[in-house]
Design a binder for these strands. Structure first.
Length: 224
DNA sequence: GGCCAGGACACCA
DNA sequence: TGGTGTCATGGC
């Protein structure tokens, strides 16, 4: 079984190619993007990030100087903009309160400590924390999301009711601990989820159909 | 015009 | 612990 999850990775990589994640110019942009993309299409996030760029607000210092109202206005295209403005403010507030605004210092902490700290912040849950860990702090943490659960439960590898932590432990027990591998695998899962493994799946076009137990049983009843 | 998107939190039983 | 409502814009 050790090879199974790695083999699926290789199939996705061969099919889609490298995804070059995370699409951002700096660790701070990764964090902003990770918060803005919560339950939101990345295209809408890009609009919000572009607004922040236009206002030169993509550094902790500049962002902390914006009012919450102004910040909300700039990130409006990303949806949930009032909530997300609060979340961004909470993050930079913490950064200044404990690290004098020095993000590198915060991200350089040991993995376990950093994760617990991120999770303690309002608006940062498991997936956002792990995205920051992997893509901003370059820690070997596997990021789990809704696509991960959907794809691998339909493949018959895990239960559809598996928890976030259990699913994360599953992947990290099945793979070598590699930042590069975890980076690419999560990105490929998102790519595959967007393309094929939707709520209404397109199994006939799926590169993993041969691996999919529910698809093999009945091509019309894929995991549904 | 409904569905869906790279979640998290509050509240309830 | 687990289920449900809320937060909101924009493409398809």
């Amino acid at each position: 079984m050790y090879h199974d999850i790695l083999r699926i990775y290789r199939q996705l990589l061969a099919h889609y190619g490298p995804q070059h994640w995370w699409p951002a110019d700096s660790p701070f942009q990764v964090i902003v993007g990770a918060i803005l993309t919560q339950s939101t299409n990345w295209q809408n996030v890009e609009r919000a990030i572009e607004n922040l760029k236009q206002h030169n607000a993509l550094t902790p210092e500049r962002l902390s100087k914006l009012s919450e109202e102004k910040l909300a206005e700039l990130i409006r295209p990303a949806g949930y903009f009032r909530q997300k403005a609060k979340k961004l403010k909470a993050f930079v507030g913490h950064l200044y309160a404990h690290y004098d605004g020095n993000l590198q210092k915060m991200l350089a902490q040991p993995t376990k400590k950093l994760r617990a700290e991120l999770l303690s912040l309002w608006g940062i849950g498991p997936e956002t924390a792990d995205s920051i860990m992997l893509y901003a702090a370059r820690k070997p943490i596997f990021v789990v999301d809704a696509y991960t659960k959907r794809i691998f439960s339909r493949l018959g590898r895990v239960s559809p009711t598996i928890s976030y932590d259990e699913l994360q432990r599953f992947f990290m027990s099945q793979l070598p601990k590699s930042v590069k591998l975890f980076n690419e695998y999560h990105a490929l899962i998102v790519r595959h989820g967007k393309a094929i493994c939707r709520p209404k799946p397109r199994c006939a076009q799926c590169v993993l159909a041969r691996d999919c137990q529910s698809y093999r049983r009945s091509s019309s009843a894929c995991g549904r």
